[in-house]
Design a protein around this nucleic acid. Structure first.
Length: 563
RNA sequence: GACUCGGUAGCUCAGCUGGUAGAGCACAACACUUUUAAUGUUGGGGUCCUGGGUUCGAACCCCAGCCGGGUCACCA
């Protein structure tokens, strides 16, 4: 491994510390009794405190130094005075250990007493300090000046996401986002638990991926020798639990979808789904607006939130607009009672791309998505979706073409989706079959599996139920004013970092040829390389061992492929 | 997937018309006992993303690739 100059220096300091009898990674606990925040909030002149954290800045002025210690709750200034730390003749601990061998980023423990400096900063006068863990890599060190400007920020998104641990250390505002994320989950959980609803867990590995239309990840179970799918939704399992007699069940569900990645889509994401028996979607709308008002207040202390250029207010109640009215409002077209052909013609007139795989529901959905969706900035319930795009939703009590469904739109984006759940098992079977027909017609979004066990469960009877799903990542984006999902996930999915592989000279020769033409027949490659038999054999075996090339037998031919 | 912008020191970035690779922070050395983006002096540090090509000469121009950002498409 190639080490930078600074890394070599820090490794050398490890040795020097051990020579002086200082263990850089001590085993014993350190008896911390204050955090930086507690020391400042419960400040008393002369109070003895024991704190620990990373040393994040140092202003050395000869025999005295000011430094900043950062712990989980922030930073506090610490004052190192040579004669306080080294009351006797031996000044090694200050002169050598502190000034030379401790680096920015190191974890140290400090015993000292509180005082206030001449410039009014609450500070810990260090009486003794202990190295708790040495850091071998230099941290990026953003600095904030008197005007609040950040210099030398650690801002490159790639580095920040790949090394989130560093991001969290040096960018306090990043930590705040994740604190809020956890507050949101806690708030939602409390809201549900207070009402007596029951948090459950359902399978992530599913034999049939149901409850949504999305491409799943496929895996394989060895001893059962069957394919299993990572869940794309947990809806069908939660409804089975309503069949089983729970009045209300919810789950924070990590879902996995094998689709494109961008700033609003990560392959794994978190949804919250809740199902409540004996309710309908009207009840659920009221429940949802109360829930979000509560959550926004718990997270931000206010119902108002800023998202980009928009100010939104999560205070209940929210506007309710039917999909028909929304389309009428923004396009002037009334979808009521129209045939598929009439809808298609209207869509074309609106400048929407259509094709023959689109059914009525899809056409209406496109009209809404293209012309209406973006206009709903304040939280708005869009209700009564077309039947053939909602296969798990009960038909509307007043209009059999529609369903009792709503989505909650905020800043033109969907953050929640809810139904009066379909509990007629015969209707449900027909809807699944209609989806199969759509899939056969070429609609890649239509569900192509029928979950027979779910239908069997419904045949045992499910009470009237309303269900709600909330995209937790989207919601926290709104509550923390982040435009990108990567900012609200600790570890967003990234392409793996390419590891540098060391090749010897013969291997390089072969690999260069292989890169220009891959795959290539093995004899051709061997001839082109011009190596002796022995060298050739070593080189090609070296390349396959380092997993930069592979050799495959196709019939009688050996084929070499660069990886 | 398309378009577009970027990849230079540990971090943030500059680098002119193709002509010996730069700054600030960080690091090392010295000075400095109430500073706070501490300060002053001195010094070290580079696979200019990778591989080809053009050229007397490439961080810079051309081609291919890798990684990332943004926009769009896709994604109930």
């Amino acid at each position: 491994m190639q080490l930078s100059e600074q890394e070599l220096i820090r490794r050398k300091k490890l040795e020097d510390l051990r020579t002086l009898g200082v263990e850089p990674y001590p085993a014993a606990l350190y008896p911390v009794n204050h955090t930086s925040k507690k020391a400042k909030n419960e400040y008393e002149e002369g109070k003895q405190v024991i704190i620990a954290g990373r040393l994040m800045s140092a202003r050395i002025q000869g025999k005295a130094s000011f430094a900043e210690l950062q712990d989980s709750e922030g930073r506090i200034q610490v004052y190192f005075n040579r004669d306080e730390i080294c009351p006797g003749d031996d000044k090694t601990k200050y002169n050598d250990i502190f000034k030379k061998l401790i680096d920015l980023g190191d974890f140290i423990g400090i015993e000292g007493e509180l005082f206030t400096t001449q410039v009014g900063e609450k500070t810990v006068m260090v009486k003794d300090f202990t190295l708790l863990s040495k850091t071998l890599r230099p941290l990026p060190l953003p600095k904030t000046d008197a005007d609040g400007n950040i210099h030398d920020g650690f801002t490159d998104p790639e580095l920040r996401y790949r090394m989130r641990y560093v991001d969290l250390v040096v960018n306090p505002q990043v930590k705040d986002v994740f604190v809020k994320r956890t507050k949101l989950f806690t708030a939602m959980r409390n809201f549900f638990n207070d009402k007596g609803y029951f948090e459950v867990e359902t399978p992530v590995l599913q034999p049939i991926p149901g409850g949504a239309a999305a491409r799943p990840f496929i895996t394989h179970h060895n001893s059962l020798d069957i394919p299993l799918y990572m869940r794309i939704a947990n809806e069908l399992y939660l409804k089975r639990l309503i069949v089983g007699g729970f009045d209300g069940v919810y789950e924070f569900s990590k879902n996995f979808r094998n689709e494109g990645m961008d700033r609003t889509h990560n392959p794994e994401f978190t949804a919250m789904e809740i199902y409540v028996a004996y309710k309908d979607y009207n009840w659920m709308m009221e429940f949802t607006e109360n829930l979000l008002e509560y959550c926004a207040t718990q997270v931000n202390g206010t119902t108002e939130a800023t998202f980009g250029e928009h100010k939104v207010d999560f205070k209940a109640p929210y506007a309710r607009v039917t999909m028909t009215d929304a389309i009428k409002q923004f396009t002037g077209f009334d979808i009521t009672g129209k045939t598929e052909d009439e809808l298609r013609a209207a869509a074309v007139e609106m400048g929407i791309e259509v094709d023959d795989t689109m059914g009525k529901g899809k056409l209406i959905d496109e009209m809404f998505g293209e012309k209406c969706e973006g206009n709903f900035i304040q939280p708005t319930f869009i209700t009564d979706y077309p039947k053939d795009m909602s296969p798990l939703c009960k038909a509307h009590r007043d209009n059999p073409e529609l369903t009792e469904r709503f989505e909650l739109m905020v800043c033109g984006k969907e953050i929640a989706n809810a139904y009066s759940e379909l509990n007629d098992p015969i209707d449900q079977r027909e809807r699944f079959e209609a989806q199969l027909a759509l899939a056969a017609r070429g609609d890649v979004e239509a569900t192509e599996f029928i979950d027979q066990d779910f239908l069997r469960a419904l045949e045992f009877g499910m009470p009237p139920t309303s269900g709600l799903g909330i995209g937790m990542d989207r919601l926290i984006m709104f509550l923390t004013n982040n435009q990108s999902i990567q900012e609200v996930l600790f570890f967003p999915q990234m392409k793996p970092e390419k590891k540098q592989v060391e090749l010897n000279d013969d291997e390089k020769v072969v690999f260069e040829i292989l890169k220009k033409q891959t795959p290539i027949a093995l004899p051709t490659l061997k001839e082109a390389a011009g190596l002796s038999n022995k060298k050739w054999d070593k080189a090609i075996k070296g390349l396959t061992a380092k997993k930069v090339a592979k050799v495959e037998k196709t019939g009688d031919d050996l084929i070499v492929t660069a990886l």
